[in-house]
Amino acid sequence: MGIRAEHEIHGRRKGRNIGVGLMLGGFVLLVMVLTFVKITDTDFTRAPGTANPAPSAEATD
């Protein structure tokens, strides 16, 4: 009796592998979006540890 190419166990493992793949894909996407938010929210013109500058006179006019 030969081993069939597609056994039931392969189907079950396929389901598990797809699940892990989707989770890893989701994780990569989340890190990407998180990085985008962090970069766009950070004021790089300010030195680390210093307070936000007060609004300028032009901005308040």
Partner: peptide, 8 residues
């Protein structure tokens, strides 16, 4: 080991 293989 095969029949009890863990699922996600």
């Amino acid at each position: 080991a095969v029949t009890n293989e863990a699922q996600l």
